[in-house]
Amino acid sequence: MAMAIALSERGRGRTGGNPNVGCIIVKGGIIVGRGWTQPGGRPHAEAMALAQAGKAAKGADIYVTMEPCAHKSERGPTCADLVKDAAPARVIVATLDIDERTRRHGIDRLGDAGVSVSVGLLEQQAHRAMAGFFTRMEKGRPHVTLKLAMSLDGCIAMADGTSKWITGDRARAHAHLERARCDAILVGAGTVAADNPSLDVRLTGLEKRSPIPIVLGKAEIQDHWQEIAEPEAIAGLDNINWLLIEGGSATAASFLKANLVDRLLLYRAPILIGGGLQGIGDIGLGSLDAAHGQWTRLDRRDLGQDMLEIYERAA
């Protein structure tokens, strides 16, 4: 299942409104098929893995990060039917589908066909890997990551706005990888006016995975950009599961104040600026007590001389 979850990450930011599912088919201790949701949402992970496995799927174990879909679609057959027809011995599911059109219908259809089904293996990890889909279904908006590249004293630029470069090459490369894993990227109108950013992915081989650029507020933008008036307007972004916020202390503060940030990426460079521009503006904190217990650290790693810390909002 851990391998299936890792495969699901390949589809992150490329599946539109669909979940980025991963699937592994094992028979006799050998992987005979693997798949992940393809760009645009089709083929689904199970369809890809079953096509690779062929007849070897009969009597095999199928590990899938989300319950196979069971609702009809003009885009192809249901995965529950594909899996059922393949006649595996077992289907191991990490998490149920949150979509009521499928929830429990997929596993029930398999169980009625005599297939052994279990649910819950590495559920938390699978849910986190598909958090964009779950957030959109549960909250009606994309999953939001706020990225900040800062000095040790919390500055994102010199007092005159100079910000190239606070972090080193490895940290910047990692930030571009994060861009490639998102459907869209957002900055404030002030950042657009000051920097005219391209917001693309500049990693060899991943250039085509550049996210949709979005600006918060009024700005002179190119045709392929989108514009929203307020943070809450992200609920109206179509087929976007993963949103990355970069640039602008006011923009960062506005999303935090609106309680719309699910994940933090903090890149810290071993420098002190003093008197520079702070990374986050006023978020309307009423008391210091209210600041505690809001975030849980998931990871901390060195990227050259810089440090990356990853946090998610506490449940």
Rank of each mutant, 00 (worst) to 15 (best):
A173K: 11
A173N: 09
H174T: 00
A175P: 10
H176V: 01
H176S: 02
L177E: 06
L177D: 03
R179T: 02
R179C: 06
R181C: 08
C182T: 09
C182K: 04
C182V: 01
C182A: 15
D183R: 07
D183E: 01
A184I: 11
L186V: 09
V187A: 04
V187H: 06
G188T: 06
A189L: 06
A189N: 05
A193E: 14
A193S: 12
A194W: 04
D195G: 08
N196V: 06
N196E: 05
S198C: 05
R202F: 03
T204N: 12
T204V: 12
G205E: 03
G205A: 12
L206C: 10
R209K: 10
R209W: 09
S210Q: 01
P211E: 05
I212H: 05
P213A: 10
V215Q: 01
L216Y: 04
A219E: 11
I221D: 01
I221K: 05
Q222N: 08
D223F: 01
H224R: 14
Q226H: 15
I228Q: 01
E230G: 00
E230N: 13
E230T: 15
P231D: 09
E232A: 15
A233H: 13
I234G: 07
A235N: 01
A235R: 08
A235C: 03
L237Q: 07
